[in-house]
Design a protein around this nucleic acid. Sequence first.
RNA 1: GCCGUCGUGGCUUAGCCUGGCAAAGCGGCUGAUUCGUAAUCAGCAGAUCGAGGGUUCAAAUCCCUCCGACGGCUCCA
Length: 632
Amino acid sequence: MQILLIHSDYIEYETKRSTPVAEKIEDSLKKGRMEEAVAVFVAVERDDEGNIEYATCKAFEEIKKVAEQVKTNRIMLYPYAHLSSSLASPKAAVDTLKKLEGLLKEAEFEVKRAPFGWYKSFTIKCKGHPLSELSRTIRAGEKKCAAVVKEKEEVVSEALKSEAKATSYWYILTPRGELIKPDDFDFSGHGNLAKFVNYEIHKSRAVDKIPPHVELMRRLELSDYEPGSDQGNMRFYPRGRLMKSLLENYVLEEAARKGAMEVETPLMYDMNHPTLKKYLDRFPARQYSIEADKKQLFLRFAACFGQFLMNHDMTISYKNLPLKMVELTRYSFRKEQSGELVGLRRLRAFTMPDMHTLCKDMDEAIRQFNEQYNMCIDVLSDIGLDLSDYEVAIRFTRDFYEENKDFIVGLVKTVNKPVLIELWDQRFFYFVLKFEFNYIDAMDKASALSTVQIDVENAERYDIKYIDPTGEERRPLILHCSPSGAIERCMYALLEKAYMNSEKGIVPMFPVWLSPTQVRIIPVTQKHIEYAEKVAEGLDCRVDIDDREETVGKKIRDAGKEWVPYVVVVGDEEVNSGNITVTIRSESLPNKPANVKMTVQELNERASDEISGLPYRGLALAARLSARPRFM
RNA sequence: GCCGUCGUGGCUUAGCCUGGCAAAGCGGCUGAUUCGUAAUCAGCAGAUCGAGGGUUCAAAUCCCUCCGACGGCUCCA
């Protein structure tokens, strides 16, 4: 916020013409005059929008200080856009001005406020003494002022009021349908669930290690922080890009298999679009905003916007339902608080498959929910995460539960292990039912992967309708589904899992279909490279050749450090026998490689079998290791 | 965003407390070695000690501000 304070003999204004953003005012406010007053010219800036309370209170303090110094009790607030080139939205500006006016009045100042959004003429007679002209820049900053603390308490108490209404009731639901309070539940044999419940309910997250996956993502040259961007925006090296691409394609193909139509929608939207504005108001200050020409734009944080706007314009018959659309958001942007960002776990720009299903009624929504619940289990399983890696949370309103008890218990039976239940007396969010699969990492932290929600609110908000058999317009229910959750987060989970495995004495690796190199061929000396090439030609997967002038021991070690699933050493023996010796990583123990003699064809069959039915791409790097640059 | 800890060649770190020529390993380059399952040998290059400011004859080292990472609070995919 920029403010300019002028101690004046008098200030007077008169409105001339309204602009499109003008506030509505009574005629009495079209002219104003104040004698012996501090005129406060104010430009509310974009930065203030994140913390209007702070900016308002800080401005209040500054004005109060100056007014006391120049010994006046009269304040004229005057909106003055020309003090800044980075203005807040008109709505935020008016809010701020009104709040500031309120604070000043509370402090017993005599306050007048010139109307916002009008062309005005004004006359001011500046006193000209040393303190009569002052300017202040207010930035969301370090110190809290007294007024902020007071204001915060009020905000908190508001939030507490709403939270009282939305009390969460926590339970554990077993596959046998028993609903048990967490305190009464015997967690033995359910260590991860205990961690998850602890994480969710008690919010106990004390940890003193650095996250293992952060080190691994760099050591494996998958991805890294990009200091040249904003925090939480990653760079992906060729290996990481390959893995990510495979995962992306996989989820899209699975969605397509379930009948979803792939679409693409814009990354940025008009902040003042009437429909979007309402939606945005539920997620204050969470998005990146940018300015283009005169428009205030925000970057999407999911694909909902684009798809719902598309749904709004579509002509949809009941015969088209359930109607599925999917988009892989590269990227979804969420301006998370900087302290929350961690490696691939929590980002500001992330890739999320986002599928929406329009359903004609609750019965269909529930059937779809069940189908997608199962799809999510299958998707995570192919990615390399099984039911022992994540915990299930199901959250719903009491009403929904009363009407669909058997269905909920059925979901628990599907996974055949106890799940965490969160139940609300009233609907507090836009959904009545949702589940997430929460991955539990090496530091006992939980992160949501797959999720499905039954949305009962946005069809109305976006005016999405379908025509029923009688020709009537009706509102569909909308399922939100992310079959895998964020792609980066899947990579994080795989890295954390590999780390935990290595702690348990299991050799860490990725699923073969995701391994950047699937087969590494190590020629014993330079003269065996030609033979290595021949072996490579017989393999239908990502094969590379370590042609560097290093010892065999070194090359073996390096292949191990890259988690290559199959390592083939070729020397005189292989050239003579025609067979190859393969080190199979998945069957190896630490310091105990599993070496198996087989033919090239046998290895090819084995590898092809493991990756069949899953997306495939060629090597991300040169086939000869000597030609590869280092990224770290 | 707030609180705490940290930031030294591309990477991992020593040096910082107690100010006095910036060290090592890995990686890179050059040469020798042509090697059989977790690191072959030798040499060379490579640093604005996160950035900016201050104190001092002298700052990687002490002080301040900012940036970034990690951890906590809060939140989520």
